[in-house]
Computed example of a mutant assay.
Amino acid sequence: MSSTIYQDVFVNGKIEKIPEYIVEDYIQHNPRVETGHEGFINFFKKFQNFKPKFELLNICSEDNMVFLFHKCTFADGTVIKSVIFFVLKPSNCRTLGCN
């Protein structure tokens, strides 16, 4: 599930898929992004203006927690490496929170 959301949303930029993966009232722990899937959609639309290219470097999980370590290269050549943390809702495997 987490690699699918990563591929669909981050790599392929399919913003319309976000509601399929993220619950409406999901909790966002990044202070620059509003809580809820609409907040994430708004953030990601703006983020795409930087023309990011994502590469998944590693993935690990335990119970309903998933950690994705990835590299993001922007059009200007800037490279960042960071961790995306998902907490999955067991009943339907949609994301409750993210950092």
Rank of each mutant, 00 (worst) to 15 (best):
M1N: 04
S2Y: 10
S2V: 07
S3H: 15
S3Y: 15
T4I: 15
T4E: 15
T4A: 14
I5L: 15
Y6C: 10
Q7L: 14
Q7K: 15
Q7R: 15
D8A: 07
D8W: 08
D8N: 07
D8R: 05
D8C: 04
D8H: 08
F10P: 10
V11T: 14
N12V: 11
N12G: 11
G13L: 08
G13F: 13
G13W: 07
I15G: 10
I15K: 07
I15E: 06
I15T: 09
E16S: 15
E16I: 08
E16W: 12
K17C: 14
K17L: 15
K17M: 15
I18H: 11
I18K: 07
I18Q: 08
P19K: 08
E20W: 05
E20P: 02
Y26P: 00
I27P: 01
I27E: 05
Q28V: 00
E34Q: 08
E34W: 02
T35D: 12
G36Q: 01
G36T: 02
G36P: 05
H37P: 00
E38Y: 06
E38A: 10
G39P: 01
G39R: 01
G39M: 01
F40L: 04
F40Q: 02
N42A: 05
N42C: 00
N42W: 00
F43P: 00
F44T: 02
F44V: 01
K46E: 11
F47K: 00
F47C: 00
F47W: 03
F47M: 01
Q48A: 02
Q48G: 06
N49F: 13
N49H: 14
K51N: 04
K51W: 01
P52V: 01
P52S: 01
K53T: 11
F54L: 02
L57P: 00
L57H: 01
N58S: 10
N58Y: 09
I59K: 12
C60S: 13
S61H: 15
S61L: 13
E62F: 13
E62A: 10
E62D: 12
D63F: 04
N64G: 02
V66S: 08
V66T: 11
F67M: 12
F67K: 07
L68G: 08
F69V: 10
K71Q: 10
C72F: 10
C72W: 06
T73P: 12
T73K: 14
F74M: 12
F74A: 11
F74H: 08
A75C: 04
A75S: 06
D76T: 03
D76F: 03
G77N: 00
T78M: 11
V79C: 05
V79P: 05
K81Y: 09
S82P: 03
S82H: 06
V83P: 04
V83N: 11
F85L: 08
F85G: 03
F85Q: 07
F85Y: 06
F86D: 12
V87L: 09
P90H: 06
N92H: 03
R94W: 03
T95L: 12
L96V: 09
L96G: 05
G97Y: 04
G97F: 02
C98N: 13
N99F: 12
